Computed example of a mutant assay.
Amino acid sequence: MTEITGHTRVWAILADPIHHVKTPQALNALMRKRGVDGVLIPIHVGADDLSGLVSGLRTMRNLGGLIVTVPHKTAMVALCDEVSPAARAIGAVNTVRREADGRLVGEMLDGAGFVAGLRQAGIEPKGRSAYLAGAGGAANAIAFALAEAGVSRLTVANRTRSKCEDLAQRLAEAYPGFAVEIGSPDPSGHEIVVNATSLGLRENDPLPLDADRLTPDQIVAEIIMQPETTALLAAAKERGCRTHPGGPMLACQLELMADFTEMRP
């Protein structure tokens, strides 16, 4: 695509806040590489306005699909006409395809992207214990993906305990016998520590866990992409931990997002 015309198809990413997103740059570059006459645009929308926006977007006949990120992944499930069994179990959607008749079909790719990013960096989750901060949309996807990848046990910690209990129950149903516990802000005793909350996007955010309990033998991973070094990763580095930024999770799911939303010439 050399310019936007009346033939150009449109994709959008929905977020609040929106300034940190890296997906438009990445997927627009991928579309150029594929020779797609299309563009992905950022849309800043709050939770209260999400339903109305999605209702309007589904009427756009040149809309290819949506990428959905913080804080809308969980709410997006109910706004789709159809979601995959995996996304239904996870309870969140981050990629949506618009069918020709206006129907919206959702999928969740965060978990697959996160685990692929770990493995690309030489971090194999199988057989390792994992601590997960968060129980929202991305955290749910990562929890299921870590269980699928074969972690030895998983501890989930979140300010709202009921969300942890709900996630633990769904994991137990999907993976009978899988060891999952509800934890505290203390991440000690785990080999892989993951922040799957939005804490770290804003400069004055509190840490998502008790970083004072981190030890040099732990791997600390983020899902936040901007800033690349969050306050948690900086604290982990100070304590001698190996760190893993949020960028690889997106990089490893770009092709999956493009294929699902039919970004093709």
Rank of each mutant, 00 (worst) to 15 (best):
Ala168Ile: 11
Ala92Val: 10
Leu66Thr: 08
Ile224Tyr: 09
Ala89Thr: 11
Arg170Ala: 06
Met249Arg: 04
Ile18Phe: 05
Met76Ser: 11
Pro24Gly: 05
Asn140Pro: 08
Leu233Asn: 10
Gly6Leu: 11
Asp37His: 15
Gly122Asn: 04
Lys33Ile: 02
His244Asp: 09
Leu254Phe: 04
Ala149Trp: 14
Glu228Gly: 03
Ala145Met: 08
Ala141Asn: 05
Tyr175Arg: 10
Glu255Thr: 07
Val151Trp: 00
Gly177Thr: 00
Leu154Ala: 03
Arg58Tyr: 04
Ile43Asp: 09
Pro24Trp: 04
Arg98Phe: 00
Val156Tyr: 03
Gly35Met: 02
Thr155Ile: 01
Ser55Cys: 13
Arg153Ala: 08
Val36Cys: 14
Asp217Thr: 12
Arg202Ala: 09
Leu79Lys: 09
Glu148Arg: 15
Ala87Lys: 02
Pro216Lys: 05
Thr23Asp: 09
Ala143Pro: 00
Asn158Tyr: 03
Gly122Ile: 02
Ala168Met: 11
Asn140Thr: 12
Gln169Tyr: 09
Pro265Trp: 00
Tyr175Pro: 06
Leu250Pro: 12
Thr215Tyr: 00
Val180Glu: 03
Gly35Val: 00
Glu191Phe: 04
Ala15Ile: 02
Glu255Tyr: 03
Arg239Val: 03
Leu63Glu: 03
Gly6Trp: 08
Gly6Gln: 13
His20Asn: 03
Pro71Cys: 08
Pro24Asp: 04
Lys126Ala: 12
Val39Glu: 03
Leu250Ile: 12
Pro245Val: 00
Pro265Gly: 01
Cys241Val: 02
Gln226Trp: 10
His20Asp: 01
Arg88Met: 10
Ile123Gln: 10
Gln226Phe: 07
Val180Thr: 09
Glu107Gly: 00
Thr160His: 10
Gln25Arg: 15
Val180Lys: 03
Ala15Glu: 07
Leu207Glu: 12
Ser51Trp: 07
Asp37Thr: 11
Leu207Lys: 13
Met108Ala: 14
Arg170Met: 08
Thr8Phe: 07
Ala92Lys: 08
Leu104Lys: 15
Phe144Asn: 11
Phe144Ile: 12
Ala221Ser: 14
Asn28His: 11
Glu107His: 15
